[in-house]
């Protein structure tokens, strides 16, 4: 703090009132410059993003249509649409979240409502942080070793979903914990005072009043599960699998599946002679799915925040 004083007011105050106007102007100029510099830094990462997305959409325009979504890839993936991968991605999202969401929410309930401060809780929190930082390719190795080989699930929708579930788990725990912590302590005490048990308090007061935060956290993981490629590459997703066109349930739990993310990787790097608009179209479908889900979560969050109950 003392350094501020000495730098900003080197000549003592009061004495040089009038001479300061030039200094003030310089200050203003410097201030504006800093502001624009930082705004530039912010813009430099957001503007290219918007340009790039616009470019992707522009390149994909010739192929984008309802048919592109509902058709299967054909002719060695050099023609047709993205139906089979799209449905596969939906499978992975639903199953992985059906596994991760309950575990993640209950884990957060434990951490926020039951756990006492101490070394044990500290270790759990460290584990959550580290789990969130495990590279996705290491998740893939784990999924291969644990689910595909050890548990004998083989390369399957289930093994891939389990792998994705563990990857999304720590983030669900963190966002749920934050949502639970936003419920005031006094509500819990009021419930305990009238003889409600811990679980009754959680079930009837804490969870219903943090559900918006919990849901937005989970929805954000939908886009994560949709976008990841590495963890499913060796655990269940395949380059190509023939399915009936328009079939909503082409995959069983132990079948292998296609996935949008994997499909984009495949047709843009592994298959020669694919017409360029096909990967652009696939990228746009994947991007649209992910961004749509995110925007839904943001809208939900804003809406629910506007009707808070206390």
């Amino acid at each position: 703090m003392s350094s501020v004083e000495s730098k900003s007011n080197p000549k003592g105050s009061g004495v040089r009132r009038f001479a300061e106007s030039a200094g003030i102007r310089r200050k203003f100029r410097q201030e504006a410059m800093v502001k624009w510099l930082l705004a530039g830094a912010t813009g430099m990462m957001l503007v290219p993003l918007i340009l790039i997305i616009a470019y992707l959409v522009f390149k994909a325009l010739p192929i984008l249509s309802v048919g592109f979504l509902l058709d299967n890839p054909v002719k060695g993936m050099r023609e047709g649409g993205v139906w089979a991968p799209f449905v596969g991605t939906m499978y992975l999202i639903v199953i992985s979240l059906a596994i991760a969401a309950p575990i993640g929410v209950l884990a957060a309930v434990y951490l926020n409502e039951y756990a006492r401060e101490g070394w044990f809780t500290r270790i759990i929190n460290l584990a959550v942080i580290n789990l969130a930082g495990v590279p996705s390719i290491v998740h893939a190795l784990f999924g291969l070793g644990a689910f595909v080989l050890f548990a004998g699930l083989g390369r399957s929708v289930l093994a891939a979903s389990l792998t994705l579930a563990i990857m999304t788990l720590p983030v669900i725990i963190a966002s749920t914990k934050e949502a639970l912590a936003s419920v005031p302590m006094s509500f819990r005490q009021a419930c305990w005072n009238v003889g409600a048990t811990r679980w009754q308090t959680i079930r009837h007061i804490v969870l219903p009043n943090s559900i918006s935060g919990i849901l937005t956290g989970i929805i954000l993981q939908v886009s994560r599960a949709a976008g990841e490629t590495a963890p499913i590459m060796f655990t269940g997703a395949v380059f190509f699998k023939k399915v009936q066109q328009g079939d909503m349930f082409p995959y069983g739990l132990l079948d292998q599946c296609m996935a949008l993310s994997m499909h984009l990787f495949t047709i843009s790097t592994q298959v020669p002679g694919v017409p360029m608009e096909l990967p652009y179209g696939t990228a746009v479908v994947l991007l649209a799915t992910v961004l749509l889900v995110n925007i839904c979560s943001i809208v939900l969050r804003v809406y629910l925040r506007s009707r808070k109950k206390w």
């Binding site: 993003l49 976008g227 990841e228 490629t229 990228a283 961004l291 995110n294």
Partner: peptide, 9 residues
């Protein structure tokens, strides 16, 4: 939203 863009994209 920037953070949500999948790595394969």
């Amino acid at each position: 939203l920037l953070a949500a863009i999948p790595s394969v994209v």
